[in-house]
């Protein structure tokens, strides 16, 4: 658990940040220049805040009187540009921390195996591809026996093919290494795939911090995620495969039928984009869409309607004219017709 609260002034941007990150991956999300990297630099001790308090697992890293140097913070840092030492082989890069930190390097075999670094050990950083470099950087940070892993847009410098190459490693990392992580990103797909909680930043401030599903279902935050990306993420379980090949997926919002081939019991996360949801006051009839779920309007803001479906929250993007035509307001009952759903692994 990391608790962060600090202020730091710069010409043109003043940072005033406060959030707590639970176990798992916390994404620091926001547009370029909003202070994400500066924030993780302050956490790692590479930048001194004007004032504030940073606590990692009950250990004070910074509070005005205490200011631990990066060496003493035990925070592994995966930089956007990898920053491997060019004069050392991959193996010596990986073992770098073991020279002065007790407990580092203990998992050398396990981590090199997990990241498939064996074939690279004798190479020099200059001969590695971008994706390989990033994998070595992740391994090097893990082998420094950290209590927290910070990753600053580790995929930003890679092309799409390399990104798809690295993402599964990051997922393995999340699932196999029980290490809290701060993950800086401005890519919604990455956040969806990796994070379980989100710190939304805007112009040096934290707009909202909370579980990923909560942030995605908040109409006030939708513009920050980008209108095309706005929409809910809900959990579901495959319960049955029906005769026509469709699978019935049970969610807290009701049953949803999807064309997919997964055995019953498979847990899924369903991504329902706001612009893929149509609202109807009457129970819909004569529609090709399979999934129409009863819903109640909670809030309407900037063309985003927030809906309650059982315990789940969902967003629908509609025009002001539709709002008027359907006479939608908070508390109104309606039906949410879901045109398409994308499935993410749970």
């Amino acid at each position: 658990m990391i608790e962060v609260e600090f202020q730091r002034g710069f010409p043109g941007l003043s940072l005033d940040v406060a959030f707590q990150a639970p176990a798992g991956i916390t994404a620091l999300f926001g547009p370029s220049g909003c202070g994400k990297t500066t924030t993780v630099n302050a956490v790692a001790g590479l930048l001194r805040p004007d004032r504030g308090r940073i606590v990692l697992n009950g250990r004070v890293l910074f509070d005005g009187r205490t200011d631990l140097p990066p060496q003493a913070r035990r925070i592994g840092y995966v930089f956007q540009d990898a920053r491997l030492f060019p004069h050392l082989s991959v193996a010596r890069n990986l073992r770098f921390a073991a020279r002065w930190r007790r407990g580092a390097d203990a998992d050398f075999d396990r981590i090199t195996a997990m990241l498939d670094l064996g074939p690279l050990l004798h190479r020099r950083p200059a001969t590695l591809s971008g994706g390989e470099r990033q994998r070595v950087a992740i391994g090097r940070a893990l082998l420094s026996a950290p209590e927290l892993l910070v990753m600053d847009e580790p995929l930003a410098a890679l092309d799409e093919a390399r990104k798809t190459e690295i993402l599964p490693w990051l997922e393995r990392l999340r699932d196999e290494v029980r290490l809290p992580m701060l993950y800086v990103s401005h890519s919604v797909p990455e956040v969806l795939r990796l994070a379980n909680s989100v710190v939304l930043m805007q112009q040096g401030r934290v707009r909202h911090a909370g579980p990923l599903t909560e942030v995605l279902a908040d109409p006030a935050l939708a513009p920050l995620m980008g209108a095309r990306e706005a929409g809910a993420l809900i959990a579901g379980t495959v319960v049955a495969r029906e005769a026509d090949g469709l699978s019935r997926v049970m969610t807290a919002a009701g049953p949803i039928w999807l064309a997919l081939d997964r055995p019953p019991g498979t847990r899924l996360r369903l991504r329902i984009l706001a612009h893929e949801v149509i609202l109807s006051r009457a129970a819909p009839q004569g529609l090709s869409a399979l999934n129409a779920l009863p819903a109640t309007v909670i809030d309407i803001r900037d063309g985003m309607v927030q809906l309650a479906l059982g315990d789940e929250r969902m967003l629908a993007q509609i025009t002001p004219r539709s709002v008027q035509m359907l006479d939608l307001k908070a508390g109104a009952a309606c039906h949410a017709i879901v045109k398409s759903v994308s499935v993410l692994p749970s």
């Binding site: 590479l46 990066p70 060496q71 592994g76 420094s144």
Partner: peptide, 21 residues
């Protein structure tokens, strides 16, 4: 690149060792 020295610091290297290594 001083950023390499920063990376060494996050890996726990004392200042003198950053200089030497």
């Amino acid at each position: 690149d001083p950023r390499l020295e920063q990376a060494a610091a996050t890996l726990g290297a004392p200042r003198a060792m950053i200089f030497l290594s």
